[in-house]
Each structure stands twice: as structure tokens, then as C-alpha cells.
């Protein structure tokens, strides 16, 4: 009897999907998955087109365009799989942060600003070059402490509803919250066009919505907290394909 109970508990843990991290696309309905895979119908491609135009356009002031230094945007293949990463100066940068840094340092142009249309567009266009390639972030060396901080946040109960990310996105993956299936909480599809927003948005905007959902303080877009969390999510997604620009409910 005791053995039977123990076995049932083990099976229950397996059914809850503890430990298994699934690609976000596997949680999409067949219709949304087809939409995500079809550039002619995916509204996010409006941002991709705009991002490619930004890539080629030199900023004011005579400095080179992105293309002037990096060449065709196709040369960015694989780059998004390695972000967030720790820069030479010790800062943790995601793809948005890398683009902004490049823009201010090499183009001597004012930053676009988090969640601005040009930054979402450029990020989407650059990330697209890695679509289908496996996530491959560095988690050792200078990244290790950021990964640990991200994990701590992921596992900390927060807000008036006292929930951690892990309690839903690890322990209850695949179960239903009302009509929604709980995903593994992976950011490989961002920036993503979210139907609820009716526009393109960053992973940090999505994380702010989660914080609000558990009635917790929302960290700022680009904050150290969400950057560390983004790296931890990428570490959990290691080997899973980049889906950006994603399509989400």
C-alpha cells in the first residue's frame, strides 16, 4: 500500500511536468502556431520590415548605419541565441541593451528607449536571423552570479498572491488556469506580437504583466531584476529554438 502511494506520488510529479521545459510553440493552438510560422500572415513582420530598414539607414550625424559596420543583417545569424550576455564592462545586456549600447557608442545617437517602436523593430529583425537555432547562452564565468540571481527571483514567492514563477511555470506546466494552459515560462519568442496587446512587445513587458497578475511590484523595463530573470529563463531554455518574433495570445 505504501509503495503504491509512493508510486502514485512519483507519477503525479511526472504528470506535473516537473523539470521538463517545453518550447513555447508547443503550447500554442494549431491556428496560432500556423500563424507564427507564416510571415505573410504574422503581424510581427511589419516590425521585422521596419527593423531591416533601420538596419540599413545611417543615423543623423554622418556615423555609419548598422549595415555599415556589420554588413547584411543575415550576418547576425546566431547572435540572438547568445543573449543576454555579460559585456566587457561587466554589465548584463540583453539584445535590446546591446543594440542601444551600439547605437550610443558607435553611432553616437540618442538611445531609442525601451519598448520604443524602432528598438522593438530592430530587436525583432536581428532575433529573426536566429529563428530555429538553439538557445546557447553562457551561464559560467561572469554570467554565473546573474544566473543565480535570476533563479532566486524565479523561485521567490511574491506579491499579495504569494506566488513564485516556479510554482506555475515549473510545478504546474500543462495544467489549465481558466482557459489558458500554463507554459514553461520561456522567453525564446520575444519580442512577440501578443494578441492581448494588439502590438509587438518585449519580454520585459510580458514579465511586468506576470508581476501585476500576482499583485507584486512591477520592476522597470530593462531593470537588473528582469535582466537577471531573462538570463535564467534563457538558461532554462538552453538548446530550445529561438522563435522570435513570436505570436502569443
Amino acid at each position: 500500500m505504501r509503495a503504491a502511494i509512493a508510486l502514485a506520488l512519483v507519477l503525479a510529479a511526472a504528470a506535473a511536468g516537473a523539470g521538463e521545459v517545453r518550447a513555447p510553440a508547443t503550447f500554442l493552438s494549431p491556428d496560432l502556431r500556423a500563424l507564427q510560422d507564416d510571415p505573410s500572415r504574422h503581424p510581427g513582420w511589419l516590425w521585422v520590415d521596419s527593423g531591416e530598414a533601420h538596419w540599413r539607414a545611417p543615423p543623423a550625424g554622418g556615423r555609419p548605419s548598422c549595415q555599415g559596420c556589420h554588413g547584411d543583417i543575415g550576418g547576425m545569424r546566431g547572435v540572438a541565441t547568445r543573449y543576454p550576455q555579460v559585456a566587457d564592462d561587466g554589465r548584463l545586456l540583453n539584445l535590446e541593451g546591446r543594440i542601444e549600447t551600439c547605437r550610443s557608442r558607435h553611432q553616437q545617437a540618442p538611445a531609442f528607449g525601451y519598448e520604443s517602436e524602432p528598438l522593438l523593430s530592430l530587436t525583432a529583425a536581428v532575433a529573426l536571423q536566429s529563428r530555429g537555432l538553439p538557445t546557447a547562452v553562457a551561464t559560467d564565468g561572469p554570467a554565473a552570479s546573474f544566473v543565480a540571481e535570476g533563479r532566486r527571483l524565479f523561485e521567490t514567492r511574491m506579491g499579495q498572491l504569494n506566488l513564485s514563477c516556479a510554482q506555475c511555470h515549473e510545478a504546474n506546466v500543462g495544467r489549465r488556469l481558466r482557459g489558458d494552459v500554463i507554459s514553461s515560462g520561456i522567453g525564446t519568442g520575444f519580442p512577440a506580437y501578443r494578441l492581448e496587446w494588439n502590438t509587438m512587445g518585449s519580454l520585459h513587458r510580458r514579465l511586468r504583466a506576470c508581476s501585476l497578475g500576482v499583485r507584486a511590484t512591477q520592476f522597470s523595463l530593462g531593470s537588473p531584476e528582469y535582466l537577471a530573470l531573462e538570463l535564467y529563463l534563457a538558461a532554462r531554455a538552453q538548446g530550445l529554438p529561438i522563435e522570435a518574433p513570436g505570436l502569443r495570445r
Binding site: Q160, L161, N162, R215, T217, Q218
Partner: peptide, 24 residues
């Protein structure tokens, strides 16, 4: 337990200012 505490205000982290000090 995953379930939130519906009548508790102590020992909660990062509670949004609109809800701080108030039970659900």
C-alpha cells in the same frame, strides 16, 4: 502550498503598493 493566502498581510515579498497591508 501553491494557493495564495486570502487573509494574511505579513511575510509577503514585493507586494504592489495598491495591495500592501491589505488581505485579498
Amino acid at each position: 502550498a501553491v494557493m495564495p493566502a486570502y487573509h494574511r498581510v505579513a511575510g509577503l515579498a514585493h507586494v504592489d503598493a495598491r495591495w500592501r497591508g491589505r488581505p485579498v
